[in-house]
Simulated assay, not measured.
Amino acid sequence: MIFTIILCCMVGQYFAATTMNPTTKHHAHHHTGTHPTHAHRTRPTVEHWVSDSFVFRYDPNTHLMLASQHQKCFIYTMNGQESTEVHTPHGLHELEKSIITIIDAYIYDTSRTFITMSQDAVMAASKTFAHLCNKNGTTTFKLN
């Protein structure tokens, strides 16, 4: 009889050991519902800053207009009508656009060349412009 009791205890321990949870913990993640899929994203095109600037000065004594950009000065001689219209915002802007168009034409048309002015010639034309364009490395051009 003792043999039967021991045998029953051993069989009971055997079944108890196989149905117990393991000692390591494992967390199962169960998700319900639908989730958005993640498409591969391409990087957007990166735009770079683009800037350009001219500084314009009008000399009322000589009726000259100066356009300066970086280390370049451009001197434009105005006609009578432009000398009058430069005193209105619209006339000033139209003159500035015309000067930029002339500069662009010289830059993009390789058959045209700028006329370089010496510092003495700039001084004779306008002392104010000579002061503004008398910087190290600055070149002054005559547009007309």
Rank of each mutant, 00 (worst) to 15 (best):
P22G: 06
T23G: 02
T23I: 08
T24F: 00
T24D: 09
K25A: 00
H27D: 10
H27S: 10
A28I: 14
A28C: 07
A28D: 14
H29G: 07
H31L: 08
H31K: 06
G33R: 07
T34C: 00
T34V: 06
T34W: 04
P36T: 03
T37V: 06
H38Q: 03
A39R: 12
A39W: 05
A39I: 11
H40A: 15
H40Q: 14
R41M: 14
T42K: 15
T42H: 15
R43C: 12
P44N: 05
P44C: 01
P44T: 04
T45N: 10
T45A: 07
T45G: 01
T45C: 01
V46Q: 14
E47M: 13
E47W: 10
W49R: 10
V50T: 08
V50Q: 13
S51T: 13
D52K: 00
D52H: 04
D52F: 04
S53R: 03
S53G: 00
S53E: 02
F54E: 04
F54K: 07
F54R: 03
V55Q: 13
V55R: 12
F56M: 11
F56K: 08
F56W: 10
R57E: 12
Y58H: 07
D59T: 14
P60N: 12
N61Y: 12
N61V: 12
T62P: 05
H63F: 08
H63A: 08
M65H: 02
M65R: 02
M65E: 09
M65P: 02
L66F: 07
A67K: 02
A67P: 00
S68Q: 11
Q69F: 09
H70G: 11
H70E: 15
H70D: 15
Q71E: 09
Q71D: 11
K72T: 06
C73P: 05
F74S: 04
F74Y: 15
I75V: 12
Y76N: 03
T77V: 10
M78F: 10
M78Q: 12
N79V: 11
N79A: 06
G80N: 13
Q81H: 11
E82I: 04
E82D: 11
E82T: 03
S83R: 04
S83W: 04
S83N: 14
T84G: 06
T84W: 07
T84C: 05
E85C: 09
V86A: 08
V86R: 06
T88Q: 05
T88Y: 03
P89Y: 08
H90Q: 12
H90N: 10
H90E: 12
H90P: 02
G91L: 07
G91C: 05
G91T: 09
G91H: 05
L92T: 13
E94N: 04
E94A: 07
E96F: 01
K97L: 09
K97N: 13
S98E: 10
S98A: 11
S98D: 08
I100C: 08
I100H: 03
I102W: 00
I103F: 00
D104K: 13
D104G: 10
D109L: 02
S111L: 04
R112T: 01
F114G: 12
I115E: 14
